[in-house]
Structures are given as structure tokens and as C-alpha cells.
Design a binder for these strands. Structure first.
Lengths: 119, 119
DNA sequence: ATATAGTACCTTGCATAGCAAAGTACCTTT
DNA sequence: AAAGGTACTTTGCTATGCAAGGTACTATAT
């Protein structure tokens, strides 16, 4: 039970959400996504990303096409399907609700501490 | 791949954090926590909470004492240990960072959409 | 031509942790 | 003593992140 593990756990639930977000902006392939997410300080690695993309594709939320590259092997460029867009919207609602709930909990704790130790 | 499952996944990472928060306010037992979290719209059930409390206790973040009840079986009242307080602070930093990262991602998508469809 | 390096995608095996459901134990009320 | 409520526990399942290793294609250097 270390803080690194706790950070991993927190990240878990939102990876799918963040990846759908990045794809929603336009066609991207895996390395684009890794770069985008890393620059937003959301740590992801290949072993997480590829299986996740496959799951999302199989669930009908994503589609992809192969595109030749001028500097290496071909790439899978992903886009959201209509279902994927709906799903992303639903996830965003969930996230905003959750973030608000946590905000409430933090605030309530702060108030409890203020009451215990009035300045 | 349904939205309910996505909600569960998002919740996962923050349950520990929210539970430590509730305990940080003062001695509580499991039913108190369930009530607190439910009222904050963080859904938790017994099968999740009890094993989690045991894990946190074994990790040295929590301590408890048995207290007789006037209306049923005895209860385990939990408090944070010093280590638990430090851990909670670290988790809060992690949470705030994460929430900020997600906010950035959402904002960036909104901007991308604005650019595509200028009013 | 062949070897090396770089890029891109995929797979395997493991560990963590939420959850539904069933179980145990204690207390109060009738 | 039987029934019902409260509280804590356990079992089996599932989902999913991740480290590590693997496959395959392309470009460059020799």
C-alpha cells in the first residue's frame, strides 16, 4: 500500500475517458495518443494502450483505418463512431458528477477541521 | 462495455481516498461511512467497503476499536493513524493533480471543436 | 545484399480491487 | 425460543493496468 499504487488506481478509471477525448479531436494513432496524454501528465504505456484500443474497437466505440507512413510501418488511425461519441458524452457527465462529489467531500472535511480548531 | 461499468471504473480509484477523508473527520463505523458516501453520491456497498477497511488497517493507515452498541452487535470504530494522515494528504495532492489534468484535456477538446466549427 | 536501428502494433502472465451473494454472529423484541 | 435486524466477513468472479517480451515493417549504413 504505497502512494504510487494509489496514483495508479486513481488513473485507471479515467484512462478510457481521456483516450476517447483525444480521439474525439480527430484521427490519431497510438503514438499521438501517448504523446498527448503524457503531455497532460496522464501516464500511459503501450501495454495498457493497445489492449484498451482493441477493447474499445470491439465494443463499437472506435473505428480505424490503416495508413501508410513515409517513415516506418503503417499506422492504425482511430476515429470515434457515433456510439463512441454518445459514450464519451456519458462518461463526461459521470466524470463531472464524480469530481463534484469529491469536491463536496473535501470541503466537508475542511469545514469539520475548522470547527474543531477555531482560529 | 456499458456506461455503468465505466462509472464503476472511475469510482474505483477514488474510493480509498473518499473513505480516508470520511474517517479523518472523526471516529466512524462502516454504516456511518456508507451513509456519508451515499449522501455524496459515491456508491459503495458492503462487499467493497469491508475488505477495503481491512486492507487499510493491515497497511497501517487505520486503527479501530470495538464499541458496544445499545441496539445491536458491537461496532468497529475507525480512526486514521499518523501514517494514514500523511497518506491522505498525498492522495489529495494526487487527486488535485489528476482533476486538473482532466480539466486540461476537456478544455483542449472544447477548443478543438471551436476551431472546427467557428460560429 | 545484409545487418542494424527505429517505429508500430500485439500478446502473455500477473496483481489489484470492486462487487454480488452467501455466510456468521450478536442483540432485541415478541 | 423464534424471528428480525444490525454488523462484520468470506468466496468466487470479473475487469483492467502493466511489465516484459514478441512480431513485423521500413530506412539507413556497410
Amino acid at each position: 500500500m504505497n502512494i504510487e499504487n494509489a496514483q495508479v488506481q486513481m488513473r485507471k478509471g479515467i484512462l478510457e475517458f481521456c483516450i476517447l477525448h483525444v480521439i474525439s479531436r480527430g484521427e490519431v494513432y497510438a503514438s499521438d495518443m501517448l504523446e498527448e496524454l503524457t503531455s497532460a501528465r496522464i501516464m500511459v504505456v503501450e501495454g495498457t494502450l493497445y489492449p484498451l484500443l482493441t477493447r474499445l474497437k470491439n465494443a463499437g466505440l472506435l473505428d480505424y483505418k490503416w495508413v501508410e507512413s513515409s517513415s516506418g510501418p503503417p499506422r492504425k488511425y482511430y476515429v470515434l463512431t457515433d456510439n463512441g461519441k454518445l459514450f464519451l458524452d456519458a462518461m463526461q457527465d459521470t466524470w463531472l458528477d464524480l469530481a463534484d462529489s469529491v469536491k463536496t467531500i473535501i470541503k466537508k472535511t475542511d469545514e469539520a477541521i475548522q470547527t474543531q480548531k477555531p482560529s
